[in-house]
Design a protein around this nucleic acid. Structure first.
Length: 547
RNA sequence: GCUCCGGUAGCUCAGUGGAUAGAGCAACAGCCUUCUAAGCUGUGGGUCGAAGGUUCGAUUCCUUCCCGGAGUACCA
């Protein structure tokens, strides 16, 4: 937001010294003495111009005509940095622009007119969601929010498979528990079956609904319990997602790819294009020919069943056929191996795979009282996402999943998450919102009249200027977060906003000061409220009006 | 073995090829007759896993190695 006041001046100066299309970037110096903005343009031009960076910087400055009401001074430092010190007036202008954006402040247009499909969660209906799904859901939903804020029209998609081996195992597991309920204690539980208590619950429901009518092990009775299992699991999953403030708008059933002939069509096409071959009774895909770092893989087993790669390619193909400008997958680290194969397949079919962006997140480990909480799917002892939300609340769960980069392993510390105090970082952000709401309530109670117009030039305290400066970065932060699909950029930024606000609120009284100054400070507080609220909304976290 | 992701303060983690590497927590010292102290201010704390290389400049890019994790099926 600050750039716009100075960018054109620099471009003009560069043009004057013969640089037509410079790669001009402004950074935020870490040290206050280095100004508010800085550029390394002189250093990047050094090679091209074959001159010393400091001389180039000097050249630029001598051609730079600065608006002294906005720029206090420009100086050269270090190896050739050009540091720009802004006048308070620049912040006041920025404040006007930010407030003019209203509730929309932070939205951008980089994705305007474009569509995006983002697939996340995509858990099969074989059980409850666990912590890994939680991280997937939080990242996916927030990435979708980021794209919407950047102007994209976003489809939130959930891909699931209600056929195949895993579902058969679910059916067998329920059926075994059902047999046990019927008193047939010797009925063997499948070796790789699902051990969770929910299986017993579903079996109990089957017993209540059908009595002993399913006692004979037939395809039909297995189908019946499978259907019950699917419905039970989906209902549980949807409920958990709802608790996390997540709604998806497209549910894609893998099985439909088989029933509507998409898979067969793809197989025929791969054969025609000479991308597949038969060996040992199976159908193989020539991945090694598309990309020599890959190896050929079976796509249809000798039993006639496809492997997961085939529907994965077919499914992603539908996303390309649905003409999205951007396609995003959120995958756990355990799925990492399939991505190169899917990409290679799509590339060979002629699609532009640069549209496909795959976000990989690493695993979550749960800690409590300094000890790791072991999660085992086999024993069914895994800590479910529901239990976590129940224990610490959806806001804390979402924030904890988002406050770290996706590519790092996440340590979820239950002890900290449980604490309703300053140790819990999410409250630090929410407290800003609650404090401002409280301030506004008091203004109303005391019947203080706040004017719509305000004199921003009264805001000259260093805490006020620091807060304005931080707020002015919001739009560029949402853009960077959307471009990189990194929610954690938002959570880091909001912590900076919170810190700047709390300092301001500590240093500068609002109520009881001279009325023009109070008026300006109230507008600054309201602007902060907008930024915090918008940021928390992107993260899918509530903005409490009191705490 | 091979592929991918990590390794930064006591702990958990930020860090866009830039300047003196940051934050939170923990530790220590202060700040409430006034807008929520779930807050503010200050102090201490570093071989950025190791070694080479590229660069005017490397925590960041490249190579090799070490440690932790994940994946390497006619499982998904």
């Amino acid at each position: 937001m600050m750039h716009r006041y100075i960018e054109s001046a620099f471009k003009q100066a560069l043009q004057d010294i013969g640089i037509a299309s410079p790669n001009l970037n402004f950074e935020r110096p870490k040290i206050a003495e280095h100004g508010h903005l800085s550029t390394n343009i002189a250093m990047t031009l050094a090679k091209e111009l074959r001159k010393k960076p400091i001389d180039i910087a000097q050249d630029i400055l001598s051609h730079l005509s600065v608006n002294t009401s906005i720029i206090e001074k420009v100086d050269i430092a270090g190896a050739g940095f050009i540091n720009i010190h802004l006048q308070p007036h620049a912040f006041h202008l920025a404040m006007r622009d930010m407030i003019a954006s209203g509730a929309m402040y932070g939205k951008s247009t980089i994705g305007s007119g474009k569509t995006a499909n983002i697939e996340y969660v995509s858990a099969n209906p074989t059980g409850k969601l666990h912590l890994g799904h939680g991280r997937n859901a939080a990242i996916g939903d927030t990435a979708a929010n980021l794209l919407e804020w950047a102007g994209y029209k976003v489809t939130r998609e959930y891909y699931f498979n209600n056929a195949g081996n895993q579902m058969n195992m679910l059916a067998k597991s329920i059926f075994a528990r059902y047999q046990h309920i019927l008193g047939n204690a010797e009925y063997p539980f499948p070796e790789d079956g699902y051990h969770g208590d929910y299986i017993i619950e579903i079996a109990q429901q089957a017993f209540e609904k059908y009595g002993n009518a399913l006692s004979e092990e037939t395809t039909s009775s297995l189908e019946t319990v499978k259907k019950m299992g699917e419905e039970w699991c989906f209902s549980s999953i949807m409920n958990t997602l709802k608790n996390m403030n997540i709604h998806q708008d497209s549910f894609f059933n893998e099985d439909s790819l088989f029933t509507d002939g998409t898979i067969q069509h793809l197989l025929n096409e791969l054969k025609e294009k000479n991308l597949s071959y038969e060996k040992d009774g199976a159908t193989w895909m020539k991945f090694s020919e598309i990309d020599e770092s890959l190896t050929d893989r079976v796509i249809v087993k000798s039993t006639g069943e496809p492997t997961y790669r085939l529907p994965d390619i077919a499914y992603h193909r539908t996303k390309f056929e649905r003409n999205y400008d951007l396609i995003v997958d959120i995958f756990g680290a355990d799925h990492i191996a399939t991505i190169p194969d899917v990409k290679a397949g799509l590339k060979a079919l002629g699609y532009d795979i640069s549209k496909l962006s795959v976000l990989i997140y690493q695993f979550v480990t749960l800690w409590d009282n300094g000890e790791q909480v072991k999660m085992s799917k086999r024993s069914g002892k895994s800590y479910t996402l529901d239990e976590l939300i129940e224990e610490v609340g959806a806001d804390v769960v979402r924030f904890f999943f988002l406050m770290r980069g996706a590519q790092t392993q996440l340590e979820f510390d239950l002890q900290i998450a449980r604490e309703q105090n300053d140790k819990n970082p999410v409250y630090y952000l929410q407290y800003v919102h609650a404090r401002i709401c409280s301030l506004l309530r008091q203004i109303e109670e005391q019947q203080i009249h706040i004017q719509e117009s305000y004199d921003a030039s009264l805001l000259i305290h260093s805490s006020e200027l620091q807060l304005l400066f931080t707020l002015s970065r919001f739009e560029e932060v949402t853009i960077r977060a959307a471009q990189n699909l990194e929610p954690q950029i938002i959570s880091e930024y909001l912590r900076e906003v919170a810190s700047a606000f709390h300092s301001f609120y500590h240093d500068c009284r609002v109520l009881g000061t001279e009325s023009e100054l109070m008026n300006a400070r109230v507008h600054l507080a309201m602007l902060t409220k907008t930024v915090i609220h918008n940021g928390l909304t992107i993260l899918g976290i509530s903005s409490p009006t009191s705490m």
